[in-house]
Design a protein around this nucleic acid. Structure first.
Lengths: 208, 208
DNA sequence: GTCTATACTGAGATAGAC
DNA sequence: GTCTATCTCAGTATAGAC
């Protein structure tokens, strides 16, 4: 069939999402897709390149939406910097809003950043979008050095990835997964506070 | 030998740390330890239970140090709440300070939180410590609801885990891994700002 | 160009002899 | 407690049918 490739991608997306990358075998994928094992290697080359293709298909709309939102915010702001909360929401909303529609696959997206699986894949699919947001944030917070801003964005990505992929630890009852909009609001508020934190020296505690 | 178990643990720790969990085979472990393959299953039962034992051995001193620092801070503070920066440093420093000594194994520790690998393991080894810090933070920030505080701790853990396990994406040059103390300071400052962020409603952006 | 059948190597796990 | 032998299943590679 002409759409063997599509069927493989569809099955792989579902199974990687439900079970994770490592726990999903290519034999499960071909059984669900109704194709031959070697077809995966013909079309994609390896398991890693298959998941790369799956990620690409899902990441592209997220990244496009992020850039559209940022474009609009910057057009509205003209020469003035965009508010940090708005930049954060433009970056986070396209990812968080997809959790409800496809929670298992969102888990895989979130995991990518935490796993040593494929830093190259993350870099390839998200770096260019990240650069745009770095520039917007630097304009909003000119007092931060590039290095300090880089670290804060690193922390931001960690908080986002963990929120996308991990169930919160139940230190209290009532922390079940809420409405995506509510989590997004909490995350934006938290990260705005972190991004705007003063950079001065903090109190030291000697260890031991 | 009587110390077969120890030799397996030592080799597994080194190899899991260098290569990650999934990329390390039990056959590599037994080759380095000089024991038989079945010995792992005799002493630990499975690969997953082996890594659980490895984690336990490394997590225990981290958690002990965290609790010692928090105990001391609370003793010094008496009835007054402990400053958020100090609580954060007590939680983060014992983990971050070990990155320099054992960077690869720290990666594994950080990954645990991001991977779907073993949420049960994370829960088992870190939950009781987390509860203590939740209580201390609730005293310092009484205006936060338990649910809001729980989410902020969730975000904090994400930022910490990502910092422990992931190389920062190079949006700017000069963001190479710095001195652990410097990264710790940046992280504490960022998270203090996030923890203290106001909880009010934020501006909405309609999507599309 | 596409796809099928099949073989190869290495993984984790286990039964049973010692 | 330990080790040999073996099982099942994984990802990968290739030869050849259409």
């Amino acid at each position: 069939m002409i759409d063997t490739k599509q069927k493989i991608l569809d099955s792989a997306e579902r199974l990687f999402g439900e079970q994770g990358y490592g726990a999903t075998s290519l034999r499960q994928v071909i059984a669900e897709a109704g194709v031959n094992l070697a077809a995966i290697h013909y079309h994609f080359g390896s398991k890693e390149e298959l998941v790369d293709a799956v990620i690409l298909r899902k990441a592209e709309p997220v990244n496009r939406e992020r850039l559209e939102m940022l474009d609009r915010l910057e057009a509205e702001a003209g020469d003035r910097p965009v508010a940090m909360e708005q930049i954060l929401e433009a970056f986070l909303a396209p990812a968080v809003s997809r959790v409800a529609a496809n929670p298992e696959f969102s888990k895989l997206m979130g995991r990518l950043l935490g796993e040593g699986m494929m830093p190259a894949v993350v870099d390839k699919h998200f770096r260019h979008v990240g650069m745009r947001f770095v520039k917007a944030m630097a304009k909003t917070l000119p007092e931060l050095s590039p290095v300090e801003l880089g670290w804060r964005i690193h922390f931001m990505i960690g908080a986002m990835a963990h929120t996308l992929c991990a169930q919160p630890v139940q230190f209290h009852t009532g922390l079940e997964m809420e409405d995506g909009q509510a989590v997004l609001q909490r995350l934006v508020a938290f990260l705005s506070g972190g991004m705007r934190a003063p950079v001065e020296q903090i109190s030291r505690i000697e260890v031991k």
